[in-house]
Amino acid sequence: MKLEFTVNGEARSIEVDPLRRLLDILRDDLALTGTKEGCGEGECGACSVIVEGKLVNSCLVPATQCAGAEVLTVDGLSESERGEMITESFALMHGAQCGFCTPGMVMAAEALLREQNDPDEEAVREGLAGNICRCTGYDMIVDAIQDAAKRGKGLW
């Protein structure tokens, strides 16, 4: 099928299998390798992206359901003021260890902050509930997101 959609603000048109996973389209067809594949079955959140304003696991979304959609990946987000703020907070608060889960965590943080711009710890943990950190550095990740909310007041 011919898939026409918007990725990180740019209109894209590519020929793909209708069941091809959004994750593979992003990484292999569009060379947007910020999005990672962890489990491939919706358990780990490493492949999290935002589609039509909603956080989703890109490993579970086939091409057909992306037709006409607006997709934001960590590659696009990190070039925005909000993305820079979250990235900086992850660095300041030591929120990244091996870093593999970080792109998914950053996308979950963006989705959360859009809904709640000053989340308490419980809300942050709920917002990150679908993202697993193999290094188990959760406390620092929670700190990073609350730090981004605080320093980035007005951005969300």
Binding site: R21, C59, T64
Partner: peptide, 27 residues
């Protein structure tokens, strides 16, 4: 939503689901 189907019919990493019949998307 596909969150069960995509897991049940999952193929190898880097490939799509192995569904061998027509698919009706309802979303």
């Amino acid at each position: 939503g596909g969150t069960d189907v995509m897991v049940r019919e999952r193929g190898y990493t880097g490939t799509g689901p192995r569904i061998d019949r027509p698919v009706l998307f309802l979303d």
